[in-house]
Write a protein that binds this DNA or RNA. Sequence first.
RNA 1: GGGGAGAUUCCAGAGUGGCCAAAUGGGGCAGACUGUAAAUCUGUUGGUGUACGCCUUCGGAGGUUCGAAUCCUCCUCUCCCCA
Length: 440
Amino acid sequence: MVDSKGKLIFVKIYTMNFVEELRWRGMLQDMMPGTEEELKKENTTAYIGFDPTSDSLHIGSLVQIMILVHFQRCGHKPIALVGGATGMVGDPSGKSKERNLLSKEVLDHNLACIQKQLEKFLNFDCGLNSAEIVNNYDWFKDMSFLDFIRDTGKHITINYMLAKDSVKNRLNTGMSFTEFSYQLVQGYDFYWLYKHKNCKLQLGGSDQWGNIVTGTELIRRMEGGDAFAITSPLLQKTDGTKFGKTEEGNVWLDPKYTSPYKFYQFWLNTADEDAKNYIKIFTLLQQEEIEALVEEHEKAPHVRLLQKKLAEEITTMVHSQEDYHNAFEASQILFGKGTSENLSKLDESTFLSLFEGVPQSEITKSDLEKGISLIDLLTEKTGIFSSNGECKRFVQGGGLSINKNKINDAALLINSSFLLKNKYLLIQKGRKNYFLVLAI
RNA sequence: GGGGAGAUUCCAGAGUGGCCAAAUGGGGCAGACUGUAAAUCUGUUGGUGUACGCCUUCGGAGGUUCGAAUCCUCCUCUCCCCA
């Protein structure tokens, strides 16, 4: 399904049933009556909207991307909508506070970046069901406010809009007219796509249900047409914490925010229970294959077969085979039986590519030749520790290693002889935090 | 408008003149164990110093005292009750 560059190769499988596919993968939350029949009847066009709040999607959006991928694999036509217009308004769904608006320039930049990311997952050249990317700014930019409230707003009552959860939840704390009108703007998107692209189905997370239904309602009232909705459950982790966050924040698809190594590590660290769900949601592996994997995993959970497969598939899909390979190798060295001998045996380019995602700092060679105390090196020179005391505590607690050798003397003097390849020092703070110091 | 309670180190919350860098719990970090897991146990959680110490910190500004998180005055903010 994925070639050497990580690009998805389209496979036409008309026998696949989209709804069934979502159902067994646990990606189906809710569906409008008649949706399944519509999908069986004809090749359908569906869309999902992506929010341009930043210039990269994160793994939360990956669920929606996968839904589009499945949709296309089932022979239907997916449209990814980037919200150049809706992004200027701000979706109140699931938000407890009024959102800050982004400037037009920032939005444009974000849109271009997100579009590029989406292109990696869908096939844009496969005939009838080629994917498309549209920007709702294109049909909103020339529409006047008066036109909109006359032609569109007239069809939907305030009562109807107020009844939505996304609005109700904010009635006490306050909400601007701008955000209130969001559902109508998104509803119009659906209407526009229905009219111009014959798009009859909107997909999305379950928090989008209210917005989607406003769209189907608008289509019914303005055109007398039938349109449908399918939502997917919002991802939950078994321990109750939010999916897709690490201590450092969001896990992004863009390698400049989350390196492939960190990305790989994120999936590898998935809890057992979560991995069973994620592998269905984030990979294209077939049911039998997944069932076999789960079974094997349960026989020997400590091998973490599921996590490894999960991390491999997703890293390869989002980044590339090569990135996966490097992340895997780096993990082997850093967490496996890597010793300082292993480290020094690596050739320099491999060594560097392994530590691509590891924070780096620099020190001059002349400092090292004179010899520098461990504490000075790790606080003043590199800022790896914020105070001398913290550094000492780590050493005393056995939590500090250099080049995979545990350090237990805080007064240690570091000189050139510690350098790997006469150039690098690999600092390990605790079990999982690595820093690379370059001597220049 | 009247009356009362409070603001403490990441959070919650003790402390009511010297024994307070400040109990306890949570969280964080680390160590052991393990599966780069969960649970558990241990250590650590203002800065500096090897250390008795020293420096900065208990809403803000002043004051009393040999000595203040603790007492006094003013200010700011939060909560509660009555109108």
